[in-house]
């Protein structure tokens, strides 16, 4: 039986990709952000995951508005990044685990989730910035399952539905006969809004509510809100917190908050990383 060792929520804005490329780790602007990842990397080194399942939103690399799936699961043995048009680079391809992906898809579909299955899927910065932040030297045997959650075109799936998808994916992992150790990522956020007259909007108070709720397992504090209410509270792009809810859903009941870092500003966002260890997992 595969084991979920825990989850990590992290921001993913493209500026981070450029900062990594330019090795701005000690730059005064970036250091308070990058320094927040040391404890998260140490935790990963301790729990040694074999597989990373990543809930993220595509920003117009693999999916366009011609066909926008609400939830799309990668089912490939290899995932490549590509030119996103706005000047960030690409990264080495990631190894997938198509057999595990299909098990997740089949199990979640049996639990009434209507998923889009992708045997080819380009992964954008929403997927790989978290990987690059947490694994500066990616383990050679790491495999991934990307799960895209639409945050581009409304209506979005509700926050509660995203959390429930996470629960279904978590149950599916725990019913997989392999002995893989799985870490789950929620990518995006926290509060930010790029567009309109409220561009630059941040909401540290609501971000703290979210981080506390994710740690305590009191996520109804978040899921009680409609998506428009979350957009109002967290900003048009801060709604990406639904990816964190999916991650949290996969972890099950009690977790231990191993680490949290919150920093304003990174680009136009309130940046955060949070590490939640699943209960009863040996390192």
């Amino acid at each position: 039986m595969a084991t979920i060792v825990g989850g990590i929520g992290t921001s993913h804005v493209p500026a981070i990709a450029n900062a990594i490329t330019n090795k701005l780790y000690d730059d005064p602007y970036w250091a308070p952000f990058f320094d927040g990842y040391g404890p998260a990397r140490a935790w990963l080194a301790d729990v040694r995951p074999d597989v990373a399942i990543v809930f993220y939103n595509d920003h117009g690399l693999n999916f366009f508005l011609d066909a926008m799936p609400t939830f799309a699961v990668g089912a490939a043995d290899r995932y490549e990044s590509d030119d996103e048009g706005w000047g960030i680079g690409t990264v080495e391809p990631f190894a997938g685990d198509a057999a595990l992906s299909w098990h997740l898809i089949e199990t979640a579909m049996a639990a009434d989730f209507d998923l889009t299955t992708c045997q080819e899927m380009l992964i954008d910065h929403g997927f790989w910035v978290p990987m690059a932040l947490l694994w500066p030297e990616r383990p050679a045997d790491l495999k991934v399952v990307p799960i895209h959650v639409n945050t581009v075109q409304h209506p979005l799936a509700s926050a509660a539905r995203c959390e429930a998808l996470g629960v279904a994916i978590g149950d599916a992992v725990r019913s997989w006969p392999g002995d893989e150790r799985v870490v789950v990522f929620g990518s995006g956020g926290l509060s930010h809004q790029l567009e309109g007259r409220r561009a630059g909007f941040l909401n540290p108070d609501f971000d703290r509510v979210c981080l506390d709720a994710l740690a305590a397992g009191t996520t109804a504090t978040i899921t009680k809100h409609t998506i428009p209410e979350l957009v109002d509270l967290a900003g048009s792009q801060g709604v990406e917190v639904i990816n964190w809810l999916a991650m949290r859903g996969a972890l099950g009941g009690d977790v231990t908050e191993v680490h949290r870092n919150y920093h304003i500003p990174i680009s136009n966002t309130a940046a955060a990383v949070q590490v939640l260890a699943a209960s009863n997992v040996s390192s």
């Binding site: 117009g60 011609d66 030119d83 048009g85 075109q153 409304h154 428009p228 957009v231 109002d232």
Partner: peptide
Amino acid sequence: EAVLFDGSLARRGYALNKMCFSLNR
């Protein structure tokens, strides 16, 4: 204060967004 890119905007903006999307190449 916020923007909900909903069906109305998605329809209105399709050509513009498609042009922008093409700039991946």
